[in-house]
Design a protein around this nucleic acid. Structure first.
Lengths: 163, 163
DNA sequence: TCGGTCTGGTTGAACTCTCAACAAGAACAT
DNA sequence: ATGTTCTTGTTGAGAGTTCAACCAGACCGA
């Protein structure tokens, strides 16, 4: 079983450098948001997704898709947001299983207050340190990675389907 | 306070695409390791760092640096790894406060068993989907981001130092 | 119409991480 | 010496995530 395609020294450098940068970056953003607005980035993204939806409301499943979140995680998170008064849940009219999360005015206000600090952090740590050419590259790299993962997911689905 | 430099539509696309790609990628890697080797990626990285150290042992503080981890997180993690029998902790000879974590033979064996699957996942989802030019870009982008964050940290340190 | 299956969403337990508080030794000044 | 300060590492509590199990409604074929 030695047919593993190990990473070369150069590949290791790239991979570790990338991982380090991403870890520090997301940690920085998360800490900023937690400190200044009392919420983790995952919750911020839920509020953003809701704020951009018509009526500021989305079904849980659509919200999960928008936030790249599992149903379970989202369910717990929305429970917490509801306790804070930033979101309310109501039944879905067209599907009695469904549940719709809606951003409250208070939630919107909290989001408005949190946004400047978060956007500033993203700009300073991402856009201000990269050249336009690097941003273009980053766009392509992200797209390629996502495509690769989409393929992987399809493959997993196919495997599951076989059994 | 409207002097926030908001993101343009294009910048938002880049940022969201990047975030999505990274989230899905790390989730994929984490799930693979958890499923196939019963450990999260953070623990895998601890084992790797120890395996590369002389004597397969490192002081907790050095290990934390190597893993980009907080002392607290590392302490909890090593406690768990010790319970699994993959790591042992012993006192540090030169500094009586210190604590040294050492990889056991069993821990090394577990790491050896986990590595092929993890490396394969990284290769397939990162190196196989990017061109050499993109990899070169990624290297530069990672370096730029880390430099930016280093500056930010220095700034924070300076602020703290002022009070 | 009825049984089987699939989908949407929630829940609880186990696990991991964060944060603040703490203990103890080192470093250093007076 | 002695007291202050810094560093090292651990701990406990609280918060967030994951996973498996579950219920209920929708969907679909006989």
């Amino acid at each position: 079983m030695s047919d593993v395609r190990w990473l070369s020294a150069e590949e290791q450098r790239v991979w570790r450098g990338f991982r380090t940068a991403v870890m520090k970056f997301t940690e920085h953003l998360d800490r900023q948001l937690q400190r200044d607005s009392g919420m983790p980035m995952a919750y911020y993204e839920i509020l953003v997704a809701l704020s951009e939806a018509p009526e500021r409301a989305l079904r849980m499943s659509e919200l999960a898709l928008a936030c790249h979140s599992s149903r379970s995680r989202l369910s717990h998170a929305v429970a917490k947001l509801e306790k804070e008064g930033w979101v309310v849940r109501r039944a879905c009219a067209s599907d009695r299983r469904g549940s719709v999360a809606e951003l409250t005015d208070e939630g919107f206000a909290v989001l408005e207050a949190a946004a400047p600090g978060h956007v500033t952090a993203v700009r300073e740590q991402l856009f201000d340190v990269l050249t336009p050419a690097q941003l273009q590259s980053l766009r392509e790299i992200s797209a390629a990675m996502e495509n690769g993962l989409a393929g992987e997911c399809a493959q997993v689905r196919a495997e599951i389907g076989e059994f």
